[in-house]
Computed example of a mutant assay.
Amino acid sequence: MKANLRKIKKYRFYSTEFKQEIVSLYESGIYSVYQLEKLYGICNKSIYQWIYKFSTFNKKGIRVVEMKESNTQKLKELEQKIKSLEQIVGQKQIQIEYLEKMIDIAKDELNIDIKKNSSTLQSNGLERTKKK
């Protein structure tokens, strides 16, 4: 005898605060509806309903249209930001290499060990250390 199995429908309920947060992210221009859909796993129909319900700009009966140019513009701006950050990281890497070379020169030519010597014993703070 087969058991009578039914599919269990899964519903997700979102708080009003969460819905308003999603709408504010959309209105601020940080994310598009498509990005919010992928980021939070919410269907775009629900997001559009929340926009019509909670948005101060978009009301029911007004169609929300996202221009492809705006998404490509955002993408170009983000790529430019990544490029500038990579340039900054490269400059910092050059500075690090320069300073490490200076430390090596100070050690070799002037016998000054700037880097911490790992073989040095830690003091317990109770005894006086002897000067060389």
Rank of each mutant, 00 (worst) to 15 (best):
A3L: 15
A3E: 13
A3T: 12
N4G: 05
R6D: 13
K10M: 07
Y11P: 11
Y11V: 15
Y14R: 08
T16C: 07
E17D: 15
F18T: 05
F18Q: 03
K19R: 07
E21F: 12
V23A: 03
L25W: 01
Y26L: 10
S28W: 03
S28H: 01
G29R: 04
G29E: 02
S32T: 13
S32E: 02
Y34I: 15
Y34S: 09
Q35D: 12
E37I: 05
K38T: 09
K38S: 08
K38I: 04
K38V: 12
L39M: 15
Y40K: 10
I42Y: 03
I42M: 07
C43N: 15
K45D: 07
S46G: 11
S46P: 14
I47W: 05
Q49L: 15
Q49P: 10
Q49V: 13
W50V: 06
I51E: 05
I51D: 03
I51T: 09
Y52V: 09
Y52K: 04
K53A: 11
K53I: 14
F54M: 00
S55K: 06
T56L: 06
N58D: 05
K60F: 03
K60Y: 04
G61W: 00
I62Y: 11
R63V: 11
R63K: 12
E66P: 06
M67W: 09
M67V: 10
N71M: 13
N71F: 06
Q73A: 08
L75P: 03
K76F: 11
K76H: 05
E77W: 14
L78D: 12
L78E: 14
E79M: 04
Q80E: 09
Q80W: 04
K81P: 02
I82S: 00
I82L: 00
K83D: 08
K83P: 14
K83L: 12
L85G: 02
I88R: 07
I88E: 07
I88H: 12
I88C: 03
V89G: 01
G90H: 14
Q91C: 05
K92P: 01
Q93A: 11
Q95H: 11
Q95G: 04
E97S: 06
E97C: 00
E97Q: 01
Y98T: 11
Y98C: 02
L99P: 03
E100G: 02
K101W: 05
M102E: 13
I103D: 06
I103P: 06
I103C: 09
D104R: 08
D104H: 09
I105T: 11
A106S: 09
A106D: 07
K107C: 00
E109A: 14
L110M: 07
L110P: 03
N111G: 01
I112D: 02
I112T: 01
I112W: 01
D113E: 14
I114H: 04
K115E: 07
K115S: 07
K116P: 05
K116E: 07
K116F: 14
N117K: 09
S118I: 14
S118A: 06
S119N: 10
T120E: 11
T120P: 10
N124Y: 15
G125Y: 00
L126T: 13
L126Y: 14
L126G: 13
E127I: 12
T129R: 13
K130P: 00
K131T: 12
K132Y: 09
